[in-house]
Structure formats: C-alpha cells, structure tokens
C-alpha cells in the first residue's frame, strides 16, 4: 500500500518538474495514439457506415467477423504485425519495426473493428424517421448520407472515445512492435511495465496516474464538445 501514496506524490513531482523521461513517453503515447485513431477512424467510419447503411449479400457474415475481431488480444496483434514488418517479413523493407509508426499500425488494427462495429450498429439504429424527413425536405442522396452521419455524431464520438481508450491503454502491441526503446518507442504503458519489472512500483503508479490524467483531459474536451 505504501507505494500508492508515494506514487501519487511522484506523479505530481514528475508533472511539475517536467521530467524529460516522462514527457518523452507522454509524447510517444500521444503521437502514436493520434495516428492510430486517425487511421482507424478514416477506415472504420466508412466501413461501419457501409455495413450499417446498405443491405448486401454476406453482410451478416461480415458483421460476425467484425464482432469477433473485437476480441483480438493485443499481444496477438503485436505478434501478427511483427511477423509482417520484421526485416525477414513481407514488409520488412519498410523498416517499421521498433518505430512509432509500426505501433500505430498495430493499434489501428486494434481500434478499427471497434470503430467500424460501433458505427455500423449506430447507423443501423438510426430512426427511420430521419431518412424519411431528409427526403421530405428535399435532400439528395449525398446530403442524406452526410446529414445522417451528422445526426449520429454523438454516437460516433462515443465509438471514437471507446477506441481511444483501448489504444491509449494497450501494452501488448507497443511492447512487441515498439520494443520499449528509451526516448523512442517507450510509451506510457510500456514504461509502466518496465518500472514494474524493475520493482519501482511507485514509479509505475505515478506513470499510470499521468496516463489516466491524459485520458481524462481527452474525455473532458470531448464532453465539452458534446455540450455545446
């Protein structure tokens, strides 16, 4: 128990003193989670929309596959991505191993099914009155789709927040693909794992608290958006 309190004090110290080691991990975490969120939103929103909006053969099967992908363990994704980007792997020439970009690729695979699956069910559950109303007000196909998306923006925001939470806290991919390299690919979560491995439990607690603070800030700014 003693290390909880000292961890809390340490967290405040690290934040106030602008400890460069901590900030490097914070920066790495923010960079990599931003890229992976951009990529997974960019791919997941259209895919989720298509799955939710249109009816086509094999749609149910696709939904089942997508829902299954939600259960992918991060360590497994890490291993999968490693197999591809390892220098003996098919994409070895891109030199993505032990880079933030490599981690982002893995986290995108982690977040994509979340974004796509939640978006699909949000679109599926759109009030049928909405489409009827838009047509009645003279909207064309494009406007109908755009306005539908805009109408469910809070739901999509929730999908993004959920995915972000998963990306921000995962450790399996960052460790396996990033290699936890100091000053480079050491993220908040791999730093916590390392500190814990070193027995520096209070350091681990401190970093964990800072990670929660980041998540809190992100969610606070999003809920501010929601209110307006």
């Amino acid at each position: 128990m003693d290390f909880l309190l000292s961890g809390f004090i340490k967290a405040i110290e690290l934040l106030i003193s602008g400890d460069s080691y901590t900030w490097s991990a914070v920066a790495a975490t923010l960079k990599v989670s931003s890229i992976s969120m951009l990529l997974s939103l960019g791919a997941g929103l259209p895919c989720g929309f298509i799955l939710g909006y249109f009816n086509f053969r094999g749609k149910r099967a696709l939904r089942t596959v997508l829902d299954t992908l939600l259960a992918l363990p991060t360590v497994f994704i890490g291993l999968l991505v490693y197999a591809f980007i390892s220098s003996k792997g098919p994409m070895g020439s891109f030199n993505l191993l032990f880079t933030l970009t490599g981690i982002a690729v893995g986290q995108t695979i982690l977040a994509f099914p979340i974004v796509a699956a939640i978006t699909a069910s949000i679109i599926e559950n759109i009030d049928p009155g909405l489409k009827l109303t838009l047509i009645s007000l003279g909207a064309g196909k494009r406007n109908t789709i755009l306005t539908c998306l805009w109408e469910v923006r809070y739901g999509i925001l929730a999908a993004a927040v959920t995915a972000y939470g998963r990306v921000l806290t995962e450790v399996g991919i960052s460790m396996m693909v990033g290699g936890n390299i100091k000053w480079h690919t050491r993220t908040m979560t791999t730093a916590i794992a390392l500190e814990t491995g070193k027995g520096m439990f209070s350091n681990g607690i401190a970093l964990g608290l800072i990670l929660i603070l980041i998540a809190f800030t992100v969610n606070l700014s999003l809920s501010f958006l929601r209110k307006k």
Partner: peptide
Amino acid sequence: TLLTQEPY
C-alpha cells in the same frame, strides 16, 4: 413533401 405522424 411528407409530414409524418411522429415528427423527426
């Protein structure tokens, strides 16, 4: 233009 019973 159409107005339904339950407006959206």
